[in-house]
């Protein structure tokens, strides 16, 4: 049976447009608001949803996503609560692929064997930043066995010799990190991204999503033409940060503002009229 991720990318291909992948941290700025956001994303136009598993030490993230992780943790978010939210959301949405993204320690602490719970909750794939192919025995192979796609990051430093290693146990799609750096920094050039995607395509049949540094509808629209999907994270998370009161609580309008931006990102990718793709 084809999973949700493959089905969605096939539909995007038929519709002739690039997909929008949104990243938000689970439970940011608090569990309730986080769940409202999650519930609104698909209708606002997210084709795939990446949900960050908050971690105290997000080493590959810039200040914006670091802060979102700390907000979520401060509000009591845990991995178990994240899975719970996904399960609740999944009862309302059976089609949109959902991918958990984060760092290994919370999963290791939860227990790799127990992490099959994610599948039952309706998670389709995982991205774990600090698990390179050298550590595939840890989670990648058990996850693939269980039927979770293990989505790998490829970066500008992943050279030709290394690409086959990176692609070997990758499933779902390949996430191309367009910059040498952490999340939330400046975007790479359009041409450079195009070349990188072409290079990856020589090594894999899987769809390629491009992320890190994409902020504006213009950038997303442009990337949608040369890759299978564009990922936007920090720019959305920043809107959450901009809608907090002095005590760090969500102000009215937070959810609407984030979802509005999702809509305009999605519009930049074009819409096939009359279809929900």
């Amino acid at each position: 049976m084809r999973g949700r991720i493959a089905t969605r990318f096939a539909a995007l291909k038929d519709a002739g447009r690039g997909g929008l992948v949104t990243f938000l941290t689970a439970g940011d700025p608090d569990a309730d608001t986080g769940l409202k956001l999650l519930r609104g994303l698909a209708d606002a136009g997210a084709d795939l949803i990446e949900l960050g598993m908050p971690f105290s030490d997000p080493m590959a993230d810039g200040p914006v996503i670091q802060a979102s992780s700390l907000r979520a943790l401060g509000a009591g978010m845990t991995l178990a609560a994240t899975l719970d939210q996904v399960a609740r959301w999944r009862q309302e949405n059976s089609e949109t692929p959902l991918i958990l993204m984060g760092y290994y320690n919370p999963i290791y602490s939860y227990g790799v064997a127990r992490f099959e719970d994610a599948l039952a909750a309706g998670v389709d794939g995982v991205i774990v930043v600090d698990l390179p192919p050298e550590e595939d025995e840890e989670l990648c192979l058990p996850a693939l066995d269980a039927g979770l796609d293990f989505i790998r990051l490829a970066t500008p430093t992943t050279d030709e010799a290394r690409l086959p290693t990176v692609m070997r146990h990758t499933a779902g799609f390949v996430y191309y990190v367009a910059i040498r750096g952490i999340t939330g920094t400046a975007a790479a050039g359009h041409e450079e991204i195009g070349q990188a995607v072409a290079r990856l395509k020589r090594h894999t049949e899987l769809p390629v999503a491009v992320g890190f540094g994409l902020r504006t509808p213009e950038q997303v629209g442009a990337v949608g033409k040369i890759a299978d999907a564009a990922v936007v994270g920090s720019a959305l998370v920043q809107i959450i940060a901009d809608h907090l009161d002095d005590d760090g609580r969500a102000k009215d309008g937070l959810v609407g503002a984030v979802l509005n931006q999702v809509r305009s990102l999605r519009r930049s990718l074009g819409t096939a009229e009359g279809s929900n793709l």
Binding site: A60, E134, L153, T157, T158, D159
Partner: peptide, 20 residues
């Protein structure tokens, strides 16, 4: 060879750093 002392150690880093 993988940098393990028993079950400890290893190379848990982002792909960007791995080649380096």
């Amino acid at each position: 060879e993988q940098g393990h002392f028993g079950k400890f150690g290893g190379r848990f880093v982002a792909e960007t750093l791995m080649p380096l």
